[in-house]
Design a protein around this nucleic acid. Sequence first.
DNA 1: CTGTTAGCGCATTCAT
DNA 2: ATGAATGCGCTAACAG
Lengths: 350, 350
Amino acid sequence: MRSTINDVAREAGVSRGTVDRVINNKGNVSKKSEEKVFAAIKKLDYVRSPFASALSKSGNRIKIGIVYPDLDHYYWDEVDKGIVEMKNTMDAMGVEILTVKTKSYDYREQIREFENLVQKGVKGIITIAYHRNKLDKKIEELYEKDIPIITFVSDAPDSKRLYYVGLNDYKAGMTAGKLMGLYLEGRGNVAVIGVHRDLASMEDRIRGFRDKIKIEYPGINILYVYSLKEDTRSGMDIYNESLKTLTEEIIEKRLDINGIYVTSSLTGHVGKVLETMEIGKKIILIGHENTKETRKMLLNDMVHATVFQDQKEEIKRAVNILWKHIIGDEEHDFPNFYSKQRILIKEQIE
Amino acid sequence: MRSTINDVAREAGVSRGTVDRVINNKGNVSKKSEEKVFAAIKKLDYVRSPFASALSKSGNRIKIGIVYPDLDHYYWDEVDKGIVEMKNTMDAMGVEILTVKTKSYDYREQIREFENLVQKGVKGIITIAYHRNKLDKKIEELYEKDIPIITFVSDAPDSKRLYYVGLNDYKAGMTAGKLMGLYLEGRGNVAVIGVHRDLASMEDRIRGFRDKIKIEYPGINILYVYSLKEDTRSGMDIYNESLKTLTEEIIEKRLDINGIYVTSSLTGHVGKVLETMEIGKKIILIGHENTKETRKMLLNDMVHATVFQDQKEEIKRAVNILWKHIIGDEEHDFPNFYSKQRILIKEQIE
DNA sequence: CTGTTAGCGCATTCAT
DNA sequence: ATGAATGCGCTAACAG
């Protein structure tokens, strides 16, 4: 039988209330009592039950916000699922998750949503930094207000964000480079397809990819870095359209292309374009993320490998970290960066 | 505010007790009441709080057992860690985890431990099936007694086990085969090092590896399948000893070896042997599992890739599944097989 | 078959 | 600075 707060109180010869004040250091406790309580805790090996705690607090529910785009559903839907799966559990722990979807990649809209959430009383926010630095000021402002921000998928490394849950993009690019080298057996011409948005992650991935190829595969040439046309719209239609144009351009200009590296989650869609062009399979396609489309194309041998993070698992991790920080659990028990890089090739799909 | 059991009771015009009987279908409820309760639940969108539930039950703690070997610590220590990390949480949920370590791979010792655990009142057991079929009878017996078994890491697929948490070994072997093909650029001579124990998983992995090579890499020859000498002892000493002998034998007999496939978690140790023989790096070493030794050898370029499951995460999953089954949550919401195959190459290590 | 009562371990009052 | 009382949502035990 594990010991409870009552046992500790009895052992220390004080009341339950006092013990509570000590463990949640709320002050107003005499030095003497405090010492006795600590001694009792150690002696009885007491750990407080997070569930009883949550249950008891469930009146004062805490709110946390998650802000991410209402675009590129083929990617974010997976995040949605993770949130839905968590919601009930968190709800039972007295945590309410407010999800807000922005209709654009405009950081100003994002900042407005932060403000709305703060109005609604959130105690922390999880969001994706589309731009490396444009959120820095706002994050600092919220930091002052004691509202921690966790970045997800794409980081704002120079800001005062509490934590980043996502890939180390430079390293992810290197892994992609390694895979390209392996699949091409060290020889050939490679094109890189990026996206127009100035996500920090895109540059970093390309750098990693380049460096890896340069160091380890001198027989591979990186011909050019192409990028999707700027477009205020988003969603699959526009992607399909411009991806098609772009890919066709690449192939037509350079008939000697052996590999394509896609820095974004559009990997599967590029595969689809290649499929319709009927020149696929000859071209090694390496990219990022794990979407339904990409898995399909992996099975069709149009895509060969991707490097990704598990969106469902990672959003859960982000929520968890934020929650623990807010309730003051595990104070700085964790570093300020998280990343678990995964590789997916055809053979792993069941 | 989420609705509670009280709200449901009020809405349905019955008592809290009756609602409780319905949701945990304990019987002794009239058809009429039951219907009213279901209607109320649906109307109020009620979900019971697992934490309040666990808290309330925490007197009648349920026990579950985990049985695994007190050998090969370089592998099982990771599982230990997962269990330790879980223990507190599960404890707070009213679940006591009894871990028992067997001193051998003898299934009879294992069965004795099952019986001990049953004596102690466990409501379910997680264990590893060293032998494909030798546990079948016992598992059936326990199944009759309503004590579910979950196999972990190595399956007893013909038994009445509730669930298997682990790799699909045939597919894992194929992935290893693919990696070997990539790293060897489709050409060369490969030796396979297995272990002496008749784990079903070893055969399956070798089959998968062979099939993949045969289909996709005709330029690769599998020279021979070597296996460690039978030995009643275990632990690192004996491994180091026999691995060294074996590896040396292989290399001496066949100077034209280009790759080695290790079917067990000894991958890193084989890498170490190659390192001391100073012929490493020229040989592509692909294996399984993710141990400290293996990670070290990956960084040293002695090991090139491994295929594994995350031991820490997966033992947690196993406990979770067993627990949910025992308390009757999510009745058959899950299939009877789980597997998440992961690849690890040097580039992924932070 | 059903309702009532007494906790599970903790945090938050409100007294003192 | 401290103790006592109340309730979080749920289940078990008892009483009808």
